[in-house]
Design a protein around this nucleic acid. Structure first.
Lengths: 175, 175
DNA sequence: CCTTAAATGTTAGAGACTAACATTTTCGTT
DNA sequence: AACGAAAATGTTAGTCTCTAACATTTAAGG
């Protein structure tokens, strides 16, 4: 990560990483399946699926996912540590890596869908609800990393989930 | 595309593609920046942004994006041609390619955000609205390709956008 | 001290992609 | 038709990620 931040992701070869770690190139690949994996070493969180499942089953699917994710993000510390911030910034500033977030999101999506369909929600409805919430959240995450405005990450995530409420956020309409 | 469908994406080398096309490997890379690009050769659609911008500015951002995308998808033919179906299936069945959809979505997202902020919507709100709608739509698209159920693509997209309505879809709640 | 398993290294190679340079094709102009 | 410029294509050599096969070292336990 230090090398990536210092000289960029593409500019850093795994030979350099292996050297810096004092191991051979082969050993690197035994620990990380790809170079990208170094940046995406977050273990996915089955907790999210549990929190989604724990929401009131009487609510629409979208709202259940939204509340579940809200509960999940309320547990992260604020401000987050520098290492995580560096990692998110690195990803946000690199097109291919940013797309790679979706390889992680896909697993989270699958877990959420599983949790929802287990309580009677239709598969398609579950997919759309999970995809929409993760989509909005990820957009807010990347925006946070790219356009720093002093706001803390958790606060930003709360704002994003809030904007996806049924009320549709702070639109101009006069109610 | 024929080679990909026939023997798989990873199993097809660009040498084979170049051979089949009767050109050199170098020439291949002059037309396609990467092998992945062969699958993602859709020109992005600024029409979407225009349609989003055309929605009632009095509506919440999320709803404007939703209606804009609904208008955009209403113009695709149903059933779609086999080539497009093959392409979507190929992508949906390949983890890395599926993530690659987001390199396309990102451009669409940027255009939508631009269209919205141009009419006074806050940047973060625009990002979340665009990200959420594209997230739900993409989830439905991949599900459509992976779990065929006879439903046509456009119909599926309409269903997805419908599920993201403010009402939250067909949840169990009794209103 | 010896045996066995785990970790690491070496080497060779496939495959995507780039850079530099040579060659051919195309096309408007004379 | 002949020419010259520009565009398209080819060749070659090389870098980098990642894999496979096999050798070597290190660690652990009896």
């Amino acid at each position: 990560m230090a090398l990536f931040v210092q000289q960029g992701f593409d500019e850093t070869t795994v030979a350099q990483i292996a050297d810096a770690a004092g191991v051979s190139q082969m050993t690197f690949f035994r620990y990380f399946p790809t170079k990208d994996a170094v940046v995406f070493d977050d273990p996915y969180d089955p907790v999210i699926a549990d929190l989604v499942a724990a929401q009131d089953a009487g609510l629409p699917a979208l709202e259940r996912v939204r509340l579940g994710l809200l509960a999940a993000w309320s547990s992260v510390p604020d401000p987050i540590d520098d290492a995580l911030r560096d990692r998110i910034r690195l990803i946000a500033g690199h097109t291919r890596l940013a797309a790679g977030i979706w390889e992680n999101n896909r697993r989270t999506e699958d877990l959420i869908v599983e949790a929802l369909t287990g309580t009677g929600v239709g598969r398609i409805e579950a997919r759309v609800a999970a995809g929409a919430c993760l989509g909005g959240l990820t957009a807010a995450l990347l925006d946070w990393a790219s356009a720093p405005d002093g706001q803390e990450l958790r606060e930003r995530m709360n704002t994003a989930l809030d904007l996806m409420r049924e009320s549709g956020g702070t639109g101009r309409r006069t109610r």
